[in-house]
């Protein structure tokens, strides 16, 4: 399987492509095309699974207008790595356990996968995963973001999330007093 015409990814993706020629072509918002194996897409993304089952996959590239090329690349990358990292038998059981235990710790390769991402890429990936209904990827990315938030002050969090502070000074002071230990007791 080839990942994006311009960016031939790794050798292992080809191996998968040989085993399973059935691929799905996805088109990002800026028109770039990505291919991902149908099996991985259907398993990891509820939305893509629905599209495949409904026969609404376009051979020329299914339009995903919500997702930028960088995020889609990461999504496809994740799908491929996921397909390669775990044997298929374990995958089925683990995909079941995702539903029952949503807080399963990310595995080592997943950790590395999200660690190399920049802030913006991570947030884009969260959005893409949310849009495509990729539970596991959403879990991994949310875990990463929550780890980033730990020990941060509200100001820092606001900066990261680009949130406007809608509290008045008095309200903020009130909250601080209410939760004094949460702010100063580290």
């Amino acid at each position: 399987m080839e990942v994006d015409k311009g960016k031939g990814e790794a050798e292992e993706t080809r191996k998968v492509a040989e085993a399973d020629r059935d691929t799905v072509t996805l088109k990002s918002s800026d028109g770039k095309l990505f291919e991902v194996s149908k099996e991985a897409a259907a398993r990891l993304s509820t939305v893509l699974a629905g599209m495949i089952a409904g026969g609404s996959i376009d051979d020329n590239g299914t339009d995903l207008k919500q997702i930028g090329s960088e995020a889609l690349e990461n999504v496809v990358d994740y799908c491929n790595k996921h397909a390669n990292s775990i044997p298929s038998a374990a995958l089925i059981s683990s995909s079941i356990s995702f539903n029952t235990a949503p807080f399963k710790e990310p595995e080592e390769w997943e950790r590395k996968f999200v660690d190399r991402l920049s802030h913006d890429a991570l947030f884009d990936l969260v959005e893409a995963a949310n849009f495509l209904g990729m539970e596991r990827l959403l879990d991994v990315t949310c875990h990463k973001i929550s780890e980033m938030m730990k020990g941060k002050s509200p100001d820092q969090i606001r900066e990261v999330f680009n949130i406007k502070n809608d509290y008045t000074k008095e309200e903020l002071e009130e909250i601080r007093q209410e939760l004094a230990w949460a702010f100063y007791d580290d």
Binding site: S153, I163, L172
Partner: peptide, 10 residues
């Protein structure tokens, strides 16, 4: 951290 996040926004 959750308690601290309450101070982020309404």
């Amino acid at each position: 951290s959750i308690l601290r996040c309450r101070a982020v926004c309404k």
